[in-house]
């Protein structure tokens, strides 16, 4: 390509475009994360007969920005006995692993940074990596509360990662692919338009596992505030704390996106609607559909948080190993058998 008389190799242009895409996705993603906190405070506020943030901006709309600025300028306190390199590294690992998952999430057909064939597997890998951040934070803080929080988190993530992976195997069998775009396309071929109905067992297991994976109520044991003060990030302050906070909400958004993509049909719309629409409107509607599903799932997170108490550590483990994993395994077997049976029919 030739711009202003300078010849630029195509691969450089590709890199620039990808970098731009990454910048756009991260910027929009983080904006969503910031407003997910606002959304949460408003939703829970109204559920709890109060109003939520009201002071900063109209209806408190600028509250997330004010919070961000506040956290950015806060003093960064590092405990004297902390393991400093690990203490620095932990929030970065947590945040990076959460953000990296964003790269394979398709927001619409083709709106994805890296359309890789193992998208689902990649997200599992990244969310497991995030657990390292938590464990390291718990260890490096050299505080007993953080340590207990880190340990709880390690066991929780290991147990629920399995349940979550298994819950999605049914979807993989039905779609025949690990590529997230293909999974959505496969759902459009179904009369219901979503896998949540044939895969209701998988969806149930997935919801519970997603709550545990993102450390949210009723499974927020690693950061159970009434027991462990703040769990693994008790000793963190300022922007390092903000990184954990953002990481958690990014992880929630990613879990909601996976729920939307793998179970709720993603951007899929019934064909009788899309057939008569101009392309740009159809795309906008599809993107809107995706976001509505994501935020509906986020709303579920908040709703549950406002309603339920917290499980105990051993009860959480019992649910993971004795209920979710057997259910998910049974779901895989049944889905596989039905698939083979249908193939035999054809």
């Amino acid at each position: 390509m030739n711009i202003l008389g300078i010849t630029i190799a195509p691969y450089i242009i590709n890199i620039v475009i990808i970098l731009l895409k990454i910048a756009v996705v991260i910027a929009i993603g983080l904006l969503h994360v910031a407003y997910a906190t606002y959304f949460e405070r408003k939703v829970i506020g109204h559920m709890q007969v109060r109003l939520g943030p009201r002071e900063v901006g109209p209806h408190g709309l600028l509250q997330p920005i004010a919070d961000g600025i506040k956290l950015f300028f806060k003093e960064d306190i590092i405990p004297a006995n902390a393991d400093k390199p690990l203490f620095y590294l932990a929030p970065v690992i947590f945040m990076v692993s959460a953000l990296t998952s964003l790269s394979v999430i398709p927001f619409f057909d083709g709106f994805v940074i890296a359309d890789i064939n193992i998208g689902l597997l990649f997200i599992f890998a990244m969310s497991s990596l995030g657990a390292y951040g938590i464990v390291m934070a718990g260890w490096a803080s050299n505080s007993k509360y953080s340590f207990l929080g880190g340990l709880r988190s390690a066991s929780q993530v290991i147990s629920y990662e399995i349940a979550m992976g298994l819950s999605l195997v049914g979807v993989m069998i039905m779609a025949g692919s690990l590529n997230l775009t293909d999974i959505v396309r496969a759902q459009q071929a179904y009369p219901t338009g979503m896998f949540a109905i044939p895969q209701f067992v998988g969806f149930f297991v997935f919801i519970l596992a997603a709550f545990a994976e993102t450390n949210r109520l009723p499974f927020d044991l690693p950061e159970a505030e009434s027991e462990l003060v703040a769990g693994y990030f008790t000793e963190y302050s300022g922007f390092r704390f903000a990184l954990f906070f953002l990481g958690e909400y990014t992880a929630m958004l990613i879990m909601s996106s996976i729920a939307s993509i793998c179970f709720l049909g993603g951007w899929g719309l019934p064909t009788f609607i899309t057939a008569n629409l101009p392309v740009f409107l159809w795309k906008a509607l599809g993107l809107g559909m995706f976001l509505v599903k994501v935020y509906a799932f986020m709303f579920l997170y908040y709703w549950v948080r406002a309603t339920l108490p917290r499980y105990r550590y051993d009860q959480l483990m019992a649910i993971g190993w004795k209920l979710l994993i057997p259910l998910a395994l049974a779901n895989i077997v049944i889905t596989g058998l039905i698939k083979i049976w249908i193939k035999g029919m054809l």
Partner: peptide
């Protein structure tokens, strides 16, 4: 008591 066990909403209802 309920807040300690993780449920936040009854706490605010109670204060009402």
């Amino acid at each position: 008591h309920v807040l300690d066990i993780g449920a936040t909403t009854p706490f605010l209802y109670a204060f009402r």
